[in-house]
Each structure stands twice: as C-alpha cells, then as structure tokens.
Design a protein around this nucleic acid. Structure first.
Length: 281
DNA sequence: AATCAAGACAACCGCATTCCT
DNA sequence: GAGGAATGCGGTTGTCTTGAT
C-alpha cells in the first residue's frame, strides 16, 4: 500500500511559527474547532500542513498548557513515570496536567538524563533535600540493576514485537518498564508491559500529592504483612523478600527489593485468584 | 567584539494505530 | 475484511540562545 503524503507540501511553509500564524490558528480553532486537521490550514488560510498545525496547537498554543520551568516535583514525577513506562512520553504527559509529551521528552533529554547520570556517579549528592531525592536515587540506580545476573532471574522474555534489547538497554532505562512475574519455583521472568495494558488512568497522584512514591524506605528485607487486594496469603509466601509492596492500582502492585544496599522497584503482575502468573505482553 | 560550542527547545519526519467507507 | 485517510506517537533534526574563549 502506498502511503499518501500527509499533505501537499508544495508551497507550504516550514520552520518556526510566527505570532501572526499563531493568532490565525488560535482564532480559527476558537471559532470552529479542529475537527479535521488536514482541512484546517486551508480553511484558516494558513500555508502550513495540517500536521504542523496540530503540533503547534497541541504543543504550544493550547490554552491549558502550563508554560515555564518544570518544578522539582514535576521532574521527580517524570523520572518515576519514565522508570515505569519507558519512553512513552504521551502516557507520561497524561499524568502531568498542562505538560506536553514533546516538552517532557525535551526535559528528559536535556535535564533529567544528566541529573540521573550525575546522581549515579555521585550518590552522596542526592540525599540532600527531600525524600524525592532519595527516591530518585533508588530509581536511577535501579536502572543499572543487572536483573539477569541477580540470583533467580532468568533472561527476559520478549514479545515478537518487542525488539530484543542489548545489554545496554537495561542500563539506559529507555524502555525500562518491566514486569517481574513469579513462578512457584521462584524463577522470575521479565516481560515488557505496555502502558496501555496497564490502564494507568487515574492511578497516579497529582503533582501535589506525590507522597505515595517518596516514602522513606523500610528497614532492609522486612517482609511486611501485605494487605493487598487480589493477593492471597499463599501467593505472598512465594514472593522473594520484598522490602515493601505498594498498590498503585488493583492488580498492579509494585514491589521493592533491597539489593546490595540499594532499593529496586518492580511491577508485579498478579493473575486472577491472586496467583502470580506468567504472561506474554 | 567576534567566534565557537553546547544547551535548550520547537518543529519535522516517518511509522504505527485508529477510524471510516 | 480491505483499503485509504486521519491522527497519534516517538525519534530526530534544525534553530535560536547563552556562555566561554
């Protein structure tokens, strides 16, 4: 099948938008909406392709966009979400009201990657201000956790649509969202999990309600009495000595493991009836 | 003051997915 | 169900700004 070009590019303008173009686009959308992006520029009198108009609107002109620098809390939220979701910028943006996927992606590449790298190379500098920092440390360090070499871990199982990652992929955490699935014999397998499969809607705190993620760590290897819906006592007994488990959403708890003094978090997939089960994503 | 490099961010491109007929 | 259009998404690039020399 031959893909038609997204728009007739002959005579269409590219590059930065002018304030005049912005005004035209804003006033048109305010008056008529944006039902059809492809037809919009022609009807609005813009020499742009619909795709460009949509991007300009969604990333810059939308009235609900929050401009300005990211707060420390927002940055920590992005780090945490990236840990869980990988490079699913739109999913991350959905949890940060007023921020766009493009903006978050840029912040990640320009600020947060460096911050994590800095934290990894100089861990003493991390625990200076808040619990957020301490959590960011554990999150960033968990990116370098070598699961394959960890006792009891087997090689990751990937779907046919998921590219087999190189060893560096485990340390880059660019697609770090993994599920730690349990078998009764304590062989653990990871598999990729798609954000949409997790149905994360409404599961994350607002920016000002972030304490869930940044509680102080529990004492090392304390097996708490996990009172989690969907997990039976029997299945709990099959778990490794998680430091703690937190229920973000029914059926999708997160467990932390203390390893060599560092804390690592994993998604725990719980099957029907409360039994851990292997699954292909 | 001029030049260069690096950083930051807006915008583009192409593929994937969804929608519609 | 097939084909094509529309839209969404993530990676990448281009451009502008800022700081160092």
């Amino acid at each position: 099948m031959v893909r038609a070009p997204c728009c007739d590019k002959v005579g269409l303008k590219k590059g930065p938008w002018t304030s005049e173009e912005d005004q035209i686009l804003i006033s048109y959308i305010q008056n008529y909406g944006h039902g059809n992006w492809r037809a919009l520029p022609k009807q609005a009198g813009l020499l742009r392709c619909g795709k460009s108009c949509r991007l300009r609107w969604t990333n810059y002109l939308r009235p609900d966009i929050k401009r300005g620098n990211f707060s420390r809390e927002e940055e920590d939220t992005i780090i945490k979400l990236h840990e869980m979701l990988g490079n699913r910028w739109s999913a991350i943006a959905a949890k940060l009201p007023g921020r766009t996927d493009n903006e978050i992606k840029n912040v990640w590449h320009t600020h947060l990657k460096k911050r994590l790298k800095r934290n990894q190379t100089n861990p003493e500098t991390i625990l200076q201000s808040t619990n957020c920092d301490s959590n960011a440390q554990s999150q960033s360090q968990s990116s370098n956790f070598n699961l394959a070499s960890h006792q009891g871990f087997e090689s990751p199982a990937y779907t046919s649509t998921s590219p087999q990652p190189s060893s560096s992929d485990f340390s880059s955490a660019t697609d770090a969202s993994v599920t730690l699935n349990m078998e009764p014999n304590h062989n653990y397998m990871m598999s990729h999990i798609k954000a949409e499969d997790m149905d994360l809607s409404g599961t994350f705190p607002e920016i000002d309600d972030i304490s869930l993620w940044f509680e102080p760590p529990l004492p090392e290897n304390t097996m708490a009495p996990f009172d989690l819906p969907g997990i039976t006592d029997e299945s709990q007994a099959q778990y490794p000595p998680f430091n703690s488990i937190e229920q973000v959403e029914p059926g999708y708890p997160y467990g932390s493991i203390i390893d060599d003094g560092m804390e690592f978090w994993y998604n725990l997939f719980i099957g029907a009836g409360g039994s851990p089960e292997l699954s292909e994503f």
